[in-house]
Design a protein around this nucleic acid. Structure first.
Length: 278
DNA sequence: CGATCTACCTGATGGC
DNA sequence: TGCCATCAGGTAGATC
């Protein structure tokens, strides 16, 4: 579920509430969420350490510790990080509990258990956490300029949607925002990158930055199942601004003439307007 | 290199 | 009410 705007919202919450806190004690319920190492490795790596920063790379949360190691949390489809008062009742599927030095608790909750938590040595990220080492450019970094996107577009003939979803090219865009970005850019999701001229590439660049930053401003998108909430359990509201995602069969809100189609691309549902996107 | 399929899990939803 | 099929924000690996 969570894409860059949702993960960034969680990061901001962690920056405010977890940075500076010492993790006193850790419990691991379900081993699957620490499968990259082991419950023992996570407990040993976190216990007694203090979180010194809250960073994000694509959809990965990175929390450097005063030990020199870094905690990585990935929410995948259904993961949540929640902060709670000590002793508060835990929701089902709470797999990791971190007891903090102010008496509060941080929980990793994940019904589908696709998510994961791991402590790794950042100097060895390329061997301990290859997916993080191989991430592409961060689309909301100041350094992501038109020229960078032009280089990406010129480098391949792939279809735009799978290209935007490739974390090794651009890190953080997922299925919802890819559809919204392509619609704003008036580009078909199956359009080959090699046919996109520099004017359209500039539109795409602007749409990527504008949509992601607008979504961050309102705390991301929370769909009907409320699977995504921030650290405090609050929903985002960018779903109210979705113009294609989840609107299959409806009239296009932008051109007023086309209907939103739903097709499948690379196994992912894809929403787009056949009239305003070409 | 790129496209497609499968798998990993649980829960919600809709049809019958 | 119950049962079954389908679908879901992500990623990794196999296959063609």
């Amino acid at each position: 579920m969570p894409e860059l705007p949702e993960v960034e919202t969680v990061r901001r919450g962690l920056e405010q509430h977890l940075v500076g806190r010492q993790i006193v004690r850790v419990e691991v319920g379900r081993e699957r969420v620490v499968r990259r190492t082991s419950p023992e490795a996570l407990i040993a790596g976190l216990s007694g350490t203090t979180v010194v920063a809250a960073q994000r790379r694509g959809k990965y949360l990175l929390l450097p510790l005063d030990s020199g190691d870094t905690m990585m949390i990935h929410l995948r489809m259904s993961g949540q990080v929640l902060l709670a008062a000590g002793g508060a009742a835990r929701p089902p599927h709470t797999h990791v509990v971190m007891y903090l030095d102010d008496g509060s608790e941080a929980w990793f909750v994940d019904p589908r258990t696709f998510g994961e938590v791991v402590v790794f040595d950042p100097d060895r990220v390329d061997v301990e956490l290859p997916p993080v080492a191989q991430l592409g450019v961060d689309p909301i970094a100041e350094s992501f300029e038109r020229a960078d996107l032009r280089r990406i577009i010129r480098s391949t003939s792939r279809a735009l949607k799978p290209l935007l979803l490739d974390q090794q090219v651009i890190a953080g865009i997922g299925n919802i925002y890819a559809d919204e970005i392509l619609h704003r850019s008036r580009l078909r999701p199956d359009r080959s990158a090699s046919t996109v001229d520099s004017r359209a590439t500039n539109r795409l660049h602007e749409a990527i930055i504008d949509i992601l930053t607008s979504a961050i401003e309102v705390g991301g998108s929370t769909l009907g199942d409320a699977q995504y909430v921030d650290l405090m359990g609050e929903s985002g509201s960018y779903q109210d601004d979705h113009r294609v995602y989840g609107r299959a069969g409806e009239r296009c809100l932008t051109c007023g003439r086309g209907w939103i189609r739903r097709t499948v691309s690379g196994g992912r549902s894809t929403h787009w307007c056949g009239v305003c996107q070409s």
